[in-house]
């Protein structure tokens, strides 16, 4: 949450600054299978966010003492490029924020990946935020989910993520950077679409019980559109291959 003193107006004529309605997503575009070396990959543009996700493995878990003889382990690294923000030069290396996001992202995929298929192995999920404009952890999870499916990793579901927030009295979907800085609440969520279960939930700011219910409904209702784009990205890899030689 930014300072309340120099807070800009976030709504104009009942619309958001970028012209969106309260429950409207920013434009979302995903390409799957764009990195040759990775087992699976995805490039995502969501509003001004640009995100790359790659999956390696299953491969022998390293270091050996981390290997689990009953199932595969997931390693996850969320990282923001030093040039990804409009302001300043980001510090390189994982900061505390990135470590926390990596942890909760890993836990999302531990829920859906069939880890018991590959005991003693690891599956690596790399998320690189090349350009950030708010909602990068949700964008990263949505991209990584496509990368895992593109790698052929067995999963129970194709997870998506998006955030909800609050501007004054209004609950809004898919919070962008300026909204994230000055809004009254921000809540990134990851959802398993087959049963609408919540796999990631973080929130700060202020939500009444009623606003929370509204926000969670908005996130679940947005699933159809986001999942559709994820699915199309995966299918397009095989449609497009036909022509080139």
């Amino acid at each position: 949450m930014g300072s309340s003193l120099n807070k800009p107006e976030l709504l104009k004529n009942g619309k958001r600054l970028d012209g969106r309605d309260f429950a409207e997503l920013r434009p979302l575009k995903i390409d799957a299978g764009i990195l040759k070396n990775a087992a699976g990959s995805a490039y995502l543009e969501w509003g001004n966010n640009k995100v790359l996700a790659a999956v390696y493995g299953p491969k022998e878990a390293m270091p050996r003492h981390m290997a689990d003889p009953t199932k595969a382990i997931i390693k996850c690294r969320y990282s923001m490029a030093p040039f990804s923000s409009i302001e300043g030069h980001g510090r390189s290396g994982p900061n505390r924020r990135a470590i926390e996001i990596s942890k909760v992202t890993k836990e999302v995929f531990e829920n859906v990946v069939m880890l018991e298929e590959f005991p003693g192995n690891e599956i690596d999920v790399f998320i690189e935020i090349l350009q950030s404009d708010g909602g990068t952890r949700a964008a990263g999870i949505t991209a990584a989910s496509v990368a895992l499916a593109n790698a052929g990793v067995k999963m129970r579901d194709l997870v998506y993520a998006v955030s909800a927030g609050r501007i004054g009295e209004h609950v809004v979907l898919d919070v962008n950077m300026i909204e994230d800085n000055y809004s009254d609440a921000d809540m990134p969520m990851a959802i398993s679409p087959r049963n609408s279960n919540v796999l990631l939930l973080q929130m700060d700011g202020g939500f009444s019980k009623q606003q929370f219910k509204e926000a969670i409904k908005m996130v679940i209702d947005a699933g159809k559109e986001i999942s559709g784009i994820q699915r199309a990205a995966l299918e397009n890899v095989y449609k497009n291959k036909k022509e080139d030689d």
Binding site: V112, A149, K154, M155, R156, D157, L158, S192, P193, R194, Q230, R231, L234, E235, Y238
Partner: peptide
């Protein structure tokens, strides 16, 4: 038909 993880 094309399916993704989770499809019934």
């Amino acid at each position: 038909h094309f399916v993704v993880p989770g499809d019934k």
